[in-house]
Nucleic acid binder design. Sequence first.
RNA 1: CGGGGUGUGGCGCAGUUGGCUAGCGCGCCGCGUUUGGGACGCGGAGGCCGGAGGUUCAAGUCCUCUCACCCCGACCA
Length: 415
Amino acid sequence: MRLSKLFTSTSKDAPADETAKNAQLLIRAGFIHKEMAGVYSYLPLGLKVIENIKTVVREEMNKLGGQEFLMTSLQRKELWEKTDRWDDKKVDIWFKSKLQNDTEVGLAWSHEEPITDMIREFIASYRDLPAYVYQFQNKLRNEVRAKSGIMRCREFLMKDLYSYSKTEQEHQKFYDVVTKAYLNIFDQVGLGDITYFTFASGGAFTQFSHEFQTLTDAGEDTIYLNRSKKLAVNEEVYNDDVLKQLDLKKEDLEKVKAAELGNIFSFGTTKSEQLDLYFVDEKGKKQSAVLGSYGIGISRLMGVVAEVLSDDKGLVWPENIAPAKAIIINLGAEQEVTKAADELYESLQTEGIEVLYDDRELSAGEKFADADLIGVPYRVVISNKTLKEDKFELKKRSSQDVELVDTRGIIDALR
RNA sequence: CGGGGUGUGGCGCAGUUGGCUAGCGCGCCGCGUUUGGGACGCGGAGGCCGGAGGUUCAAGUCCUCUCACCCCGACCA
């Protein structure tokens, strides 16, 4: 993408009403636009990051047998009444609306109920199980207080996976597979080193659920971390009994702030029974399916990466999710320089390497500053100086070192 | 929901005890000079001061109501 054509632009100042670092940087760099408190639109560069995160997640989901689909945002009241979660006193984050005939509908804040109801249509026998389905969908939650930029929103993108298993053992096995897949995902998006498998409250269904908590002061959760075991315990379940049960010693634990990027849950058979999801086993006996639910906050993940992996100059995207591989900066006013930059841009596109191309008529300083702010992994500069040697200057966003390489070298480095 | 704070061109801000055509920086438009770390000159465009009501000869400045936004807390499968 040529920056001269990109409809967004960067800004030196962040809006006064944003104090969260992730929102300040993402807005200044033109990745997101605030519609209202806790509600952000994704602009071309931001959408690119979102799509790249989805690709990483999608690959892992497909690998473990997940099948992608898409549920609706409008939901039926009756389903949620069956599980006693329609009442505003029970679930206080509902957005609700009415059809023209006064029928009440809910706006999706989660999808367990509708999806479990939907899948009844396809599950009759043990031969139909297990089933693993997932989606990327907007969740709408009427939070009393949105905060921390895109880390706590009223509308946000989530990946939710649901598993329907025949037995508790089959479920547990899959639960462990998902755990590994999640750790893979956080590795790939550059957060592996600071993301920890965390024991959290299991609600009414099991003793524990498990969270994937990423260390950052911008996070809302407090966890007790054992670094060497790569395990943590959420403050909400932190007590002597739990520590004993998990074989953790108080003196090995560090109290830290973290952001919850993933949460995996076992529901047992309760929800299946509430929603009439049964199958017939090998002996012709009616059984209820074991349900698991596994979420990753996609937009929150983007916010945490922005928050954690940035420096004083701007964003620093990991290669897997960066909006482009590199940014080409044309520093010459001369025709030959522009011609060489154009040609490089064309060849990289031909090679299928996505790059930004700063072809604007701006001063060098501004172009460098914008490149740093946007934070793609590589910067390629062409100027009179480099052209004399028939080369380009290549620099990593995360490093100060520059090297001079030819077109071939650029392609090899970026592929 | 409790406490604190803020709304003035696109963005960041200033605007004294109410007083003349509401300023500044950035950005934007035009012309020219510049081009390796946010260049410079000259000339322009753009706001009725979140909204409503009130006090006053006079309101961005005072009063009432209201809306929005931010922060702290509570809440948060």
